[in-house]
């Protein structure tokens, strides 16, 4: 997809070690996006988190993981949301271009274009786009990165609500801060800035103290995903011309051969006729 100027791009730096699990972000997200509440039950999913998964009504959510440290029960958290990839898979597979990576950072969804094919849901390596399964003519729903707020100079709702863990700002700066923290407290963090390179780089960057896969981070390729399909799709014009041209040439040859054969036969027939007359 068309690369945008990355200097202006904003990103979330989410330091999971500073997250207290208050879920103010979840509430702020529902409020700003005016999302309906979900009827949930305790322990309907894995662990303490609620609702059990992101859905058409829940764009972000805190996942809980309990573990033991020095014989004490501890909680680790992970904030699930759209990663706002630099080169998003959803935008590349959408037949009508309903997703767009904006210059400000958020990947936005244009509902008026969407035809509802759900290819974005297959393509997203993070499983972010969700569908309005309850509706007769459903659309896709996902975190907007609070684009309307960001263009007005505000911070996203969840970042505003978060008392401890979320920093929002220019992506380059966020990566710099993340790396500084890693250098300052090498014992506190897993030495990795998740999102710096994942799926070709994302606008949501994480630091954690527990291994990423244990927290439920998906192992994703470091290569931007659109490249995987483009390496085949870019050959489409060549394939069309090769097959079309090849078969045209072949038909011309076979038909000419046929015509010449017929002419020879006719010649032989007309050449034979006068002899018979004599």
């Amino acid at each position: 997809m068309s690369k945008v100027d990355t200097s202006k791009q904003k990103a979330f730096l989410i330091d999971m070690t500073k997250c207290t699990g208050c879920r103010g972000c979840q509430v702020a997200c529902k409020q700003w996006n005016q999302l309906e509440a979900e009827k949930t039950e305790f322990f309907s999913g894995e662990g303490y988190q609620n609702p059990p998964a992101m859905s058409e009504y829940t764009f972000t959510r805190i996942k809980f993981r309990d573990y033991q440290k020095n014989g004490q029960n501890e909680f680790a958290f992970y904030k699930e949301m759209c990663m706002h990839c630099e080169d998003p898979a959803c935008a590349s597979v959408c037949p009508v271009g309903a997703f767009e990576k904006t210059a400000e950072g958020p990947v936005v969804y244009k509902a008026d274009r969407c035809i509802g094919c759900r290819f974005c849901m297959i393509a997203c390596p993070f499983g972010v786009p969700k569908y309005e399964w309850s509706k007769g003519l459903p659309l896709v729903k996902k975190c907007t990165g609070c684009y309307e707020r960001v263009v007005e100079g505000l911070q996203p709702a969840c970042a505003t609500a978060c008392p401890t863990a979320i920093t929002y700002g220019n992506r380059d700066e966020m990566i710099k801060i993340a790396e500084e923290r890693l250098a300052k407290h090498p014992d506190k963090y897993i030495h990795k800035v998740y999102g710096k390179e994942e799926a070709g780089g994302t606008s949501v960057i994480y630091l954690t103290s527990l291994p990423f896969d244990e927290l439920g981070f998906k192992p994703v390729t470091l290569r931007p995903l659109p490249g995987y399909t483009w390496q085949a799709l870019r050959m489409v014009p060549a394939a069309f011309l090769t097959v079309g041209g090849g078969l045209s040439a072949l038909s011309w040859i076979t038909h000419r051969k046929d015509r010449l054969k017929k002419e020879r036969e006719e010649e032989a027939a007309t050449a034979g006729e006068p002899k018979e007359d004599k």
């Binding site: 590349s92 597979v93 569908y131 483009w230």
Partner: peptide, 19 residues
């Protein structure tokens, strides 16, 4: 999901999409 908008494929081209 939106069959009535199926024709959008012809209006908003996305050459990068296999779909």
């Amino acid at each position: 999901g939106q069959p009535h908008k199926g024709w959008h494929v012809m209006r908003y081209w996305n050459l990068h999409s296999p779909m």
